[in-house]
Structures are given as structure tokens and as C-alpha cells.
Amino acid sequence: MVKLPVGVIVNSTSVLLGGFLGAFLGDSVPERLRTALPLTFGIASMAMGVAMIVKMHMLPPVILALIVGSAIGELIRLEKGIEICAHAVQKPLKRIFKSGGNIQNQQEFMEKFVGILVLFCASGTGIFGALNEGMTGNSSILLTKSFLDFFTGGIFATALGYMVMTICVPQFIVLLALYFSASLILPMTDAKMIADFTAVGGILMLATGFRISGVKSFPIANMIPALFVAMPISYLWATFIAR
């Protein structure tokens, strides 16, 4: 009997509801709150990233995974593809809801949208939570994350509009894929590989925090492939080089 991925469903639903509520309230949310909380979310993302980075086993494979993954992302122009999809979805949403958010500058809009897309879909907490639920059936990590995602999505939706709601779709796909592949992936890994994988995710979270806070616009989406090559590179490095 296939277990229902409760944590995955609740997490994605929290983004959907938070995004809708934030966009619906819009200007009703005080300006000070809309300005200050994204900075808080940014520094929280940085803190989560640092906490994940310090768990790494070996620095060289982590850096190599980041470079190789980023190169792949740049070559296939992953972030540009996300922006094209976001533009395509943005137009019909504006017609349906008669609102496109408070950010008129399209570049600024995409900066923030891609940042929170990575925050919701590629966070270490979400990836770890989905894998953990898939292996053990324990959804507590994703349920806890859902509270944070609800308020984060709500605040960003006051500026970005109903577009934030659409993030629940790729988030659901990513988390569900991890949930069902957990029983296949985790038996082939060890603690060292998971530690290096977690560290790569931490670097992405740190870069996401800088981007959300407006400090530096890292091409986060183009860095996502680093997550897919992290464990293979960690394994190869430990097997053939760091012997």
C-alpha cells in the first residue's frame, strides 16, 4: 500500500494558501512589515545555509560540485528558462486576478521571484524532509517547514502578487519526486555523501539569502544542478582521491 505523502501535500498547500492570502490582502499589509520581513527571511536563509555548510565532510568535492553544477546551469541557461516560464504564467494570472503585485520593475520582480522559487523548491530543509518522510513516514520536518513557508509566501505575495501561488506546483513536483525516490537513493548513500550534499544545499541557501536581501544577485537557479552532482562527486572523490 502506497503511503500518502502528507508532509509534501501540506507544505505545497501552505505555499498556495499563503501566496493567495498575501496577494489578496496586498496593500492592507503595513509597508514596514512588507519591507522588513523579507530581510528577515533573507538572513534566516543565510543562517540555515551556514548551519548546513558546517556539516560538510570534505571541502574539495563540495566546491567541485558547485562549479560543475553551476557550469551546467549556465550552459543550459536554467534561470533564463525559469524566467520565460514565469513570464508565460504571469500574463494569464494578471487577467484572472487583475493584479500583478506591487513591483512594476520586471527585473526586480524576476530577481525576487527566482530567489523565493529556489528557497521553496531547493531548500535543504525541504529536500531532507521529503527524503526523510519517504524513508520513515515521518512528516514532522515538512509540517514544521509549512508554517514558515505559509508566512514567507504570504509576505512576498504582497509585493509579487498571485504569481507566488504558482510556486507550489514545481515545489510539489520536486518534493514528491524526492519522496518516492528516497527508498532508492538513500540506500546507495553514506553519511559522508549526505554531509557533502547538505553542504552544497547550504551554499545555495546562503546565496539565496543574499539575493532575497538585495545584497548580491547570485544566479541561484543556474546553481541548482550542483545538488544533482554533489553526491556522485563526493563518492568519486572519497573512493579514488581521498583514500
Results as ranks from 00 to 15, higher is better:
F41E: 01
Q171I: 09
A51W: 00
G73P: 00
M46T: 09
A159W: 02
S12W: 11
G22H: 09
G7D: 05
A130N: 03
I116T: 09
R211H: 11
T198F: 03
P38Q: 03
V6F: 14
S28D: 13
N105G: 08
A157E: 03
T239W: 12
I155F: 04
Q104Y: 08
G69A: 09
I9T: 05
F24P: 00
T208D: 08
D27W: 00
L39P: 00
S140T: 15
M205R: 03
M188E: 11
G137V: 08
M1W: 15
D149F: 05
L131S: 02
A182S: 15
L227E: 12
V54E: 13
P60F: 01
K55T: 13
K3L: 09
R34V: 10
I173T: 07
L37K: 01
M1F: 14
N105Y: 09
I127L: 08
S123R: 03
V50D: 00
F41P: 02
G134Q: 05
N102C: 06
A23M: 02
E79R: 11
L184E: 10
S140L: 15
G153D: 08
I224Y: 04
M193N: 09
I155G: 00
V229G: 01
P187H: 10
N11L: 15
I203L: 13
V229A: 00
F113Q: 00
F147N: 04
S213Y: 12
T198G: 01
R32L: 13
I185Q: 06
K112H: 15
